[in-house]
């Protein structure tokens, strides 16, 4: 199966500052793919080069399919109404608005308000609706749930999952690791214009070194231990606590969150 997006040796500099230093990445059809990285890592520049919104200096970008781009909140005139923006985008894309999609995003409830009067969540939903006009194969989402409340995030995550079920490829840039962990099939970590890791979240934890985290709550307080050998550490820790007659209130074991893995990965690269 052909990749939805192929990026080869992508380079981009602003003045003398090299932002992308020969970036390579392939995104498969039908997957949800996340670009992660700290501020200034080059996420938005990468997305904009792939989307065709920004010219790059050298390299190659191949996009196999129609693109839909969720733009930032500042990208519509403040006095436009959602219904007008939807009709305009539909006319530009030579299509008719799919009202089932618009209804599922709840656009109807605020379609006649001015853009300036919309809440952050309503703006995000509108921009997603606009990105979906023209039935694109590949959808780019830049910080899709930033500034949304819990219900807004849940609703938008549901929409993104529905799009995946329809076979759409979704590329998102996000700072929200929990969101990425629950939604994405693969992730790429960008650091100083290069991809330092590309794969699944479990591949990342493998690469980091299969660490386990033991979170223990006792009468004397909370503690977290990092270990490679879960069985021995747990047994020796429990026997020590028993010897000292410290009562255990709660105990949890996990392999760390994606956020911890990404931080470890970035630190490791720096070292």
């Amino acid at each position: 199966m052909k990749d939805a997006i192929q990026v080869c040796e992508l380079k981009k500099k602003y003045g003398s500052h090299m932002v992308l230093k020969g970036l390579n990445v392939q995104i498969k059809k039908g997957e949800i793919f996340a670009l992660l990285g700290v501020n200034g890592a080059g996420k938005t520049t990468t997305l904009e080069c792939v989307e065709g919104l920004r010219k790059y200096d050298s390299g190659m970008v191949i996009v196999n399919g129609k693109m839909g781009i969720q733009l930032q909140s500042s990208s519509l005139p403040i006095h436009i109404k959602p219904i007008e923006a939807i009709k305009l985008f539909a006319k530009w894309n030579k299509t008719k608005p799919d009202f089932s999609v618009l209804n599922s995003l709840g656009i109807k409830a605020f379609e006649n308000k001015l853009y300036i009067q919309l809440s952050t969540g309503q703006k995000r939903r509108l921009h997603l609706a606009l990105a979906l006009i023209g039935d694109p194969d590949i959808i780019f989402l830049d910080e899709p749930t930033a500034g949304l409340d819990v219900e807004g995030r849940r609703s938008l995550h549901e929409q993104i999952r529905k799009l995946k079920l329809k076979g759409k490829t979704i590329v998102l840039a996000s700072h929200d690791m929990a969101e990425v962990e629950t939604l994405c099939d693969r992730i790429a970590i960008l650091k100083k214009g290069n991809i330092t890791f590309c794969g699944t979240a479990s591949e990342l934890s493998e690469k980091i070194g299969r660490k386990y985290f033991i979170h223990i709550k006792t009468q004397q307080g909370d503690h977290t231990l990092e270990t490679d050998n879960i069985e021995d550490t747990l047994l020796s820790m429990l026997s020590e606590l028993k010897q000292k007659e410290i009562r255990v209130l709660d105990i949890k074991v996990d392999r760390g969150t994606l956020e911890q893995h990404v931080i470890d990965m970035v630190r490791r690269e720096e070292e």
Binding site: E51, G52, L53, M67, I69, S74, S75, P77, F89, W92
Partner: peptide, 17 residues
Amino acid sequence: LETYGSDIKKVYKANGV
């Protein structure tokens, strides 16, 4: 200026107009 000095111009590029 509101259009061409801001992200609004991206709307045109993103929709291929």
